[in-house]
Amino acid sequence: MTVDTRLCVACKACVLACKAENAVPDGFCRDWLVEETRGEFPDLHAQNRSERCNHCSEPPCVDACPTGASHVAGGGAVLVTHDKCTGCKACIAACPYDARYVHPQGWVDKCTFCLHRARRGEKPACVSVCPTFCLEFGDLADPDSDVSRRLRERRYKVLHPETGCGPNVYFLE
């Protein structure tokens, strides 16, 4: 997934659309906004980031999970199998991005990349709603996909690269 921070206006439509699509319980969210301002008046720089689970290539949460509930699904998305999850929170402690929470029904929940939609050929709810077109989702291994193209054309960064967990959400600058 790519997030064009130059376009994002921090409106949080993505957060609310995710909550509605995924019936995320009250008080929780799977994606969130970070609004960063650097500098001193009047030399200021701002960056808005719609953040979520990074579906890391070397996911520490999966390594930390004692039951195998947290796993890398075929295709690379990091998922949690509800009925294997005991809610022990080992994965929550291991995640460098604070992307997970305990669902009131006892299992740990987080962004699924809306794979239930992807399988029908639809983009994730957050990507579909965003009024600034700043989110994009697709196949990083396909050089013709929109995400690959955006990464070729723009400067970008990932969050906490130092952890070495290979995050797959890219922030275009």
């Binding site: 699509e21 075929g74 992807a118 396909d142 996909s145």
Partner: peptide, 23 residues
């Protein structure tokens, strides 16, 4: 996955689907 230009290997290979939230 098919149609809509989103057809992709990436999640098409997924043998472990996400439960549909049913909304």
């Amino acid at each position: 996955a098919a149609g809509s230009g989103l057809a992709s290997r990436w999640w098409g290979a997924d043998g472990d689907p996400v439960p549909d939230p049913g909304t």
